[in-house]
């Protein structure tokens, strides 16, 4: 069928090599390979199944936050309370465990705590839509951290290693594969599918691109925001569980700065803070790039502080470069052609 004026509108996506190759993910894959080659040169043990999985254990526990953080950033919002949520959830885990509860129940309480923290953010932000997420989550960040301090004062709560299955969450393996890696892979796959293949995912993109238009298209904007903030809390608790499993104890000051690391990873992955941009594989790639890079530099005793400088610069450069030259250069070429 064509229009009245005889025009046919194509439903085929035009494919351009240049565009496909210039995608951010392609760039990330190249960096990913480069980082791995570098690490392999540094350490002969790195390029083995065992070596690689050991490397992942050094950063995967906090990567669980990146999954929902990608959603939050996709909405064009931000949640800086996740680090404090991790601390509070871990404290609740320790307190309920040391109060004599079975570990299973303590884990559930931990998850519930995280979800409630997230839900509180969601509730405030949906009931008072005038407020910026930055400021609300700044407030709850301090509040959650404060509650953790009230609960634990400056003491640690521990003894988690007594429960074998709990310890195995972080340390255990199925064959050569760490259990944590398996769980992460499943979670990442689910998050990715939701983002790209479901109506929920499409609606997230719509809200991130233009919340008003989304509302007028009949999308439950506030409901979706609430769900996403709650999930963010839940997955902060998941990180708390793995962190507690790995350390065997918890304190009120753990996981500080996790929010910024999670945001950095998502942003490096191409999910920029202005909303509606980026895709999930990019974020996953960024997790592994940063994780492996940190691990590799650690092997050669490059100070972790230098690593901070590198990540910081990377973050700025990654966002700045496309804004500066590339756009102009390519536009000029197009007009000439």
């Amino acid at each position: 069928m064509a229009t009245k004026s005889g025009r046919v509108i194509s439903a085929e996506k035009p494919f351009r090599w240049k565009q496909a190759l210039l995608k951010w993910e392609v760039f990330l894959v190249i960096i990913f390979i480069a980082v791995n080659i570098m690490n392999a040169c540094i350490s002969p043990y790195y390029m083995s199944v065992n070596g690689l999985f050991t490397a992942t254990s050094s950063f995967l526990e906090k990567s669980f936050i990146v999954l929902p953080m990608a959603y939050v950033l996709l909405l064009g919002e931000i949640d800086i309370s996740v680090g404090a949520t991790v601390a509070l959830s871990a404290c609740m885990l320790g307190i309920s465990f040391n109060a004599g509860m079975p570990m299973g129940a303590a884990v559930l309480i931990c998850l519930l705590t995280g979800s409630l923290c997230g839900a509180l953010n969601g509730l405030i932000l949906t009931k008072f839509q005038e407020l910026a997420p930055m400021i609300v989550t700044l407030g709850t960040q301090i509040l959650f951290r404060g509650i953790a301090e009230i609960l634990l004062t400056d003491q640690a709560t521990g003894g988690f290693t007594k429960v074998a299955w709990f310890k195995n969450l972080y340390w255990g393996k199925v064959g050569p594969v760490p259990i944590m890696f398996l769980i992460f892979a499943v979670c990442a796959a689910v998050f990715g599918v939701i983002m790209h293949c479901t109506t929920f995912g499409r609606r997230m993109y719509a809200i991130g691109s233009n919340p008003l238009a989304a509302k007028y298209s009949g999308i439950h904007v506030q409901k979706i925001r609430f769900i996403i903030y709650t999930i963010t809390g839940t997955f902060s608790a998941v990180t708390a569980i793995f962190l507690a499993s790995g350390m065997g104890s918890a304190r009120s000051n753990i996981a500080s700065g996790y929010e910024l690391e999670a945001i950095s990873m998502a942003v490096l992955g191409g999910i920029l803070t202005d909303g509606g941009k980026g895709n999930f594989p990019g974020a996953i790639l960024a997790i592994f790039i940063l994780g492996f890079l940190r691990y590799g530099l650690g092997l050669v005793n490059v100070a972790s502080q230098l690593m901070m400088v590198i990540i910081g610069l990377l973050l700025i450069v990654v966002v700045m470069v496309p804004n500066l030259n590339l756009g102009r250069i390519f536009k000029k070429k197009e007009t000439k052609a």
């Binding site: 910024l260 945001i263 803070t273 400088v309 910081g312 973050l315 700025i316 966002v319 804004n323």
Partner: peptide, 15 residues
């Protein structure tokens, strides 16, 4: 550089 302030200063914070 047209970098959003939160990102630019997050980077600056690390650096």
């Amino acid at each position: 550089g047209k970098v959003p302030p939160i990102i630019a200063t997050l980077g600056g914070m690390y650096v």
